[in-house]
Design a protein around this nucleic acid. Structure first.
Lengths: 346, 346
DNA sequence: GGTGGGCGGGAGAGCGCTCTATGCCCTCGG
DNA sequence: CCGAGGGCATAGAGCGCTCTCCCGCCCACC
């Protein structure tokens, strides 16, 4: 900061070549005489040169930055942003998304800018940010089915990739899980254990993934001879799991198997069961969903349907990169397969 | 993306003025005739103009981006990055830091780039990133006392602000908590409850904050008549809290009060106590530290020493902004005061 | 009426980089 | 021995913006 940072020009002078040659060496382009390459590299070393990204971006029209957007409900007030941030980070899911995305981005010297889009203003800010060329594109994780951000991005012609298929179709690539099969796998586990009465805590109705997990679970249960499966709707949070299980237990005290649509709710389910003196898995078997970190740390450790979130996030980053570089123009959907991770709860 | 984005030139032509005038309107600088302002604004509207950030950065030498660096231990291998990310996000602490920092950054249209610096290569990447002018400065949260990153940044003359005072002094501003007083407050609570035998689960010895919390706790206990306080070292994780409490209980089964140096460990403490049939707080009072989200969701809810992490993170962002803008040149330390949040555990 | 000052606007020089067009030189075939 | 051709380096034109002059105008004052 004290003295002016060295530029290409300085390096070129030091090495006794032209700017263009230094540029070629830096970017590893075209045939440059090895002797001159060494000369230039030495000059770079001596001057402590670091290429200015703004100048480069100006001409390449690329930044090496992607927006990692956690997009919220319709109209959360701006003031609730802190609470939104807290909720986002409380869910182990997002940590996995970030880790997975960085697994792809990092080796390519790309970097994620964290953005929350929980209010109309914040959504506009995301669009503005991308339109200004601050980032090459966006990885979007919606927490709400009616999220208007994907449509905004698509309309603006901005490169973006979504986590999960949006409710209303939009011309953007996305990655998703075969949720129906996830529900099926959970059902198969409870059937194999011989649970006689089963119930399920679903995710919010409005979320497509919830519906599909539920459908897969119910269909498979029906085929297994369970014509009726009580359902309580949850909100993917610990508290909602507690509330849902409390309600289920009031109606169906003799339940022997429970499928919760994510691990956080499964944890709540276990809490309620323990408080009522029911042992897991001896009295009641519990299957969670996601195979998140809480599944392993929970007491007892949860048997859970694994969602390969890290791989999915990495795939998002890869897709976005392909879109940005023009290698891919049409939107695609990439589907991942769930699998059962057996621990103690079922 | 389809057709070229409009530039200042385009807007100027549309409005029939010069580039400079449009620039002045956009940036709200100097006196521009209100009539012409409207003219320009209309032209901006019509063309859908969005200023190109790269071009602006090139001349202003500012980006409006800050690196938010979670810096790890000495030599974590690059492969463990995913695990590192998972650990970072599992700790509710970082969510609060991010939320707090964004509270300051967002109204100023500044944005955080998330970076992990858990290996030497990753640290070099952070320095390179800043030297290239990708970001104006760094907010650094070290998870390890020997973290070499602060020194690297200081030596490179890069603006940075640290969370917590570094072990070896470095010419960077930082924010911190009055940890000693935090320990004192916890001790006062247990004393007030009349606990006869007390023990404590400290953080890692190497972490200065652990030492200070412990010292504050012990000194105050000593003044209260407790000459000897058994200590078990933890690692700020749930598991380490479980292990530490198990060890303490083996030696001192008659303990009546426990202070854990963070909430995650306090949660582990409660788990162990419950498994041993000890009721919290009736048999054993437990005081945690941080007042993180787990304190509220834990069973029973934890009485905890509040660390105003969000405020501290916001202060970091403010300090960094001041350094970047040259309003502040010398490093400063900003200290925050802890306070007790009473819930059920003590 | 001349002059000085303040205000509003324009012209143009970069910021540091990439990339195309161009030119030099050396080699090889005729 | 000359011309063609290919490998390597250079020159120079921008990329889109900011910012420093500078200029013209209007007003007040002597």
């Amino acid at each position: 900061m004290n003295r002016q940072a060295p530029t290409l020009e300085d390096v070129a002078r030091e090495a006794g070549v032209s700017r263009a040659t230094v540029s070629r060496v830096v970017n590893g382009v075209r045939n440059v005489d090895p002797a001159i390459q060494d000369l230039v590299r030495l000059a770079i070393e001596r001057t402590g040169y670091a290429p200015n990204r703004a100048a480069r971006s100006l001409v390449t029209r690329r930044t090496g930055t992607v927006a990692l957007v956690v997009s919220g409900a319709g109209d959360t007030s701006e003031e609730e942003q802190n609470a939104f941030a807290a909720r986002v980070f409380a869910d182990p899911f997002f940590g996995r998304v970030v880790g997975g995305a960085m697994g792809f981005l990092r080796p390519r010297s790309m970097h994620p800018v964290l953005m929350f889009a929980e209010s109309p203003g914040a959504r506009q800010e995301v669009v503005r940010y991308l339109r200004q060329g601050n980032a090459d594109g966006a990885l979007v994780v919606s927490t709400h089915p009616d999220d208007p951000l994907p449509a905004l991005l698509a309309d603006a012609g901005l490169p973006a990739v979504l986590f999960a298929r949006p409710v209303r179709p939009v011309a953007l690539s996305h990655v998703d899980l075969a949720h129906w099969d996830g529900g099926r796998i959970a059902a198969e586990r409870l059937l194999a254990r011989g649970c006689r009465k089963v119930a399920t805590v679903s995710g919010p109705w409005a979320v497509a993934a919830s519906q599909e997990r539920l459908a897969g679970f119910r269909d498979t249960m029906a085929r297994g001879g369970h014509r009726y499966v009580p359902v309580a709707e949850g909100g993917f949070t610990l508290d909602s799991g507690v509330a849902a299980m409390t309600a289920l237990l009031a109606e169906h005290p003799d339940v022997e198997g429970v499928f919760a649509a994510n691990d956080l709710m499964a944890q709540g389910v276990c809490q309620v069961l323990r408080e009522r003196g029911r042992r897991v898995p001896d009295d009641v078997a519990v299957v969670g969903f996601d195979d998140s970190s809480v599944a392993a740390t929970c007491r007892p450790p949860l048997t859970s349907v694994r969602q390969p979130v890290e791989d999915m996030a990495a795939a998002m980053a890869r897709l976005l990169d392909e879109h940005v570089r023009g290698l891919r123009t049409d939107p695609v959907a990439v589907l991942f397969e769930p699998e059962l991770v057996v621990r103690e709860s079922a």
